[in-house]
């Protein structure tokens, strides 16, 4: 298992080089990217987190995914600080014997880290700054697990 909370950029290809070595038949990865807002004037996406709790929460979510889908390996990388449009903000990777488990576990990780890992996003635009509100859909997404 690899959990990383960092300010620096990451290289998905390098991260995956030795990921899932062993008894693996499927690797699923998801990479989240900072997208522009509806108006098209996003200058910076500022990401705040709760050092200590963040790492513990991500490890807890990853351990649960590992247990439920008997994963061979799991990785969560999430950045904080000021990011620009197009920058890679986070990634998850899951390794399993079969693709169904790898896909499901990756979705589970994404659903949980959206509303149970202590990160907060703030959009800084030409016209001001605003905290991104949590979506009811994201909370509802947890019910299916």
């Amino acid at each position: 298992m690899r959990i990383a909370v960092q300010q620096e950029p990451f290289d998905p290809a390098a991260e995956l080089r030795d990921f899932g070595a062993g008894d693996t038949g499927a690797i699923v990865t998801f990479v989240g990217v900072v997208r522009d807002n509806e108006v098209g004037d996003l200058e910076t996406m500022e990401i705040e987190h709760y050092p200590g709790m963040t790492e513990a929460a991500l490890a807890g979510i990853a351990e649960e995914a590992e247990r439920r889908w008997s994963l061979g390996d799991v990785m969560v990388i999430h950045r904080y600080g000021g990011l620009k449009t197009g920058e890679r903000i986070m990634m998850v990777a899951t390794a399993a014997r079969h693709r169904k488990a790898a896909f499901e576990a990756a979705e589970y990780l994404m659903d949980y880290l959206k509303s149970r890992a202590p990160f907060w996003k703030k959009e800084i635009t030409r016209s001001g700054a605003e905290w991104v509100a949590a979506k009811a859909d994201d909370e509802a997404a947890l019910d299916r697990w």
Binding site: I89, L113, R116, A117, P118, F119, K121, V132, A133
Partner: peptide
């Protein structure tokens, strides 16, 4: 003890 708004990771 920490207080914060609903989280918005991902």
């Amino acid at each position: 003890v920490a207080f914060f708004p609903p989280m918005t990771g991902g």
